[in-house]
């Protein structure tokens, strides 16, 4: 049980858009263990991003239950959710979501600021993560002065700086060319190799191929759930 990081039961999300109710996620049961690298696949509208946002505690489910490392998330207060997002989860977004006016270093320091880490330790840890993603020489640069791949690597460094148990990446290569995409995916694969649990949302099969496990969603429910190696063996 201690190895289970994510457990969802009948996780459901409905949106009300005007008169219409959109049933984005319609009861997903999923278990992810520590150290896994899971790709959530599916066409647009399949509910994969909504599912991911609920896993990341950015969105709250309409129904169903979700345990993050054994704790039921729906029981947490807003402040506790903020702490979970801060300490337990690292986010990488499709659009990077860096603060444009802050330097790379400051962007990476942000989660540490909200964690209450002191200035010196913060700087050291942020610098270390930037070096890890190969941006040791770009710390003072601001996002507009960097390429898309560099920005996404800053985002990865930021996601990892608090040593989160779970790294979530929502279409991390969606805004990148194929070469840069490959770079980023290599970074993620390497992290997973070091033991980092990763959940990735993508609609590209070759990107999903970097993950060890693929969960396909369609119309808000799990259509397929298999290991990538098995596909390769079959092929």
């Amino acid at each position: 049980m201690n190895d289970v990081i994510i457990r969802t039961e009948e996780l459901t999300k409905h949106y009300v858009l005007g008169a219409e109710t959109v049933r984005a996620v319609r009861g997903v049961d999923l278990v992810v263990e520590r150290g896994e690298f899971v790709a959530i696949m599916g066409p647009s509208g399949s509910g994969k991003s909504t599912f991911m946002n609920m896993i990341g505690c950015l969105d709250t489910p309409t129904a169903g239950r979700y345990w993050l490392n054994g704790q039921q998330v729906s029981e947490l207060s807003e402040d506790e959710l903020a702490r979970v997002r801060n300490r337990a989860i690292g986010f990488v977004f499709q659009t990077f979501n860096l603060l444009p006016r802050a330097t790379a270093l400051h962007n990476v320091e942000l989660p540490l600021i909200y964690a209450g880490v002191g200035a010196r330790e913060r700087r050291e840890r942020a610098a270390q993560k930037l070096e890890m993603v190969g941006l040791g020489d770009r710390m003072g640069h601001k996002p507009p002065e960097m390429s898309g791949g560099q920005r996404q690597r800053v985002a990865v460094a930021r996601a990892l700086v608090n040593e989160p148990a779970l790294l979530l990446a929502d279409e991390p290569t969606g805004n990148l060319d194929s070469v840069t995409s490959e770079e980023i995916m290599h970074v993620l694969a390497q992290l997973n190799g070091e033991g980092q649990t990763i959940m990735l949302v993508t609609h590209e099969h070759d990107i999903a191929g970097y993950a060890k496990r693929q969960v396909h969603l369609r119309d808000g429910i799990i259509e397929q759930d298999f290991l990538t190696e098995a596909v390769e063996t079959r092929a």
Partner: peptide, 14 residues
């Protein structure tokens, strides 16, 4: 699976 990684407690005690 490597059990030694991610040793940081996931949910911070309130």
């Amino acid at each position: 699976m490597d059990r030694s990684v991610g040793a940081v407690p996931v949910v911070v005690p309130a």
